[in-house]
């Protein structure tokens, strides 16, 4: 296989110093001779290496595991969170072979009131932690449980819970949503636990607490545009949101 090499393209990346920087702007850099097997973040490593050689500060972005599971990477590439791929993938799983000669690649941070910018394309997603802290768990003490097989769980339920639990908390759903809504994130956790007998016990309390925290933190109202599920790297669906709505309404009506 002859490997594709991109001879030249331009990267247009966002520079911002803190959440209140009024001088935030784009900078551009021409990249040359990048092999198609280079991952997107490796391309940015090369870009940073060049900036450092020029004595400049590197372009700051979040990244960690680089295998699509930690949820740290969060770049808005050419108008799509994590860049456009055929199936769900995070920024770190995007490869340069997906781009074309002479492209201008625009890189922006997640833009949402819930995620203030720390620097350049690094944003603060602690709001997600706070939502989980409000109720995204089963209240169970270490060491107390019964045998793992004591409660049988139908395979279909376990599998569906697993799909819901695949959410990596990257925030692409919020970034893509025109309402800045975190419903896909919240509903994935609520769904996972609502589907399992262990989580059912406090399902009502959880739905109410997590939604209340989400609202308090200023995330928007879901208007079912489905932008979130279209960009979710783990293919979470709005069926989760329907389930959250159901759980929440049931809980409120029972109050």
């Amino acid at each position: 296989m002859a490997e594709k090499v991109l001879k030249q393209f331009t990267v247009k990346y966002w520079k911002q110093n803190g959440p209140k920087d009024t001088n935030a702007h784009f900078e551009e850099k021409v990249m040359k001779d990048i092999p198609g097997d280079t991952s997107f973040l490796e391309m940015l490593d090369i870009l940073n290496e060049q900036l450092i050689e020029e004595g400049k500060e590197p372009f700051v972005f979040d990244h960690d595991c680089r295998e699509g599971i930690c949820g740290m990477c969060s770049l808005y590439i050419n108008g799509t969170p994590h860049g456009k791929t055929e199936r769900g993938a995070t920024t770190c799983q995007l490869y340069m072979r997906k781009f074309n000669e002479g492209d201008v690649i625009t890189i922006e941070p997640w833009r949402s009131a819930g995620f203030p910018v720390i620097k350049d394309c690094m944003v603060d997603r602690t709001a997600f932690d706070k939502i989980i802290q409000a109720g995204g768990y089963t209240t169970v003490r270490t060491g107390a449980p019964q045998d793992a097989n004591a409660i049988l769980i139908p395979k279909a339920d376990a599998d569906e819970a697993m799909d819901c639990a695949s959410c990596i908390g990257c925030g692409a759903c919020v970034a893509a949503c025109k309402n800045g809504s975190a419903m896909l994130f919240v509903s994935s956790k609520v769904s996972q636990l609502a589907l399992l007998p262990q989580g059912r016990v406090e399902a009502a309390r959880r739905a109410k607490a997590m939604v209340a925290k989400m609202d308090e933190l200023g995330f928007g109202n879901c208007t079912n545009t489905r932008a979130c599920e279209a960009v979710c790297p783990k293919c979470e669906t709005i069926a989760n949101i329907a389930r959250l709505n159901r759980e929440f309404i049931k809980a409120k009506l029972a109050d």
């Binding site: 808005y76 800045g180 489905r226």
Partner: peptide
């Protein structure tokens, strides 16, 4: 809802947006 959602969106707008095919025009 619209006012709240605009606030939740934040003051910065994307320079470039690429609407996914799944997203219907009416919904937005």
């Amino acid at each position: 809802l619209t006012i709240q959602n605009r606030n939740a969106r934040g003051s910065n707008r994307y320079d470039k947006t690429d609407k996914p095919e799944k997203v219907e025009w009416a919904s937005q």
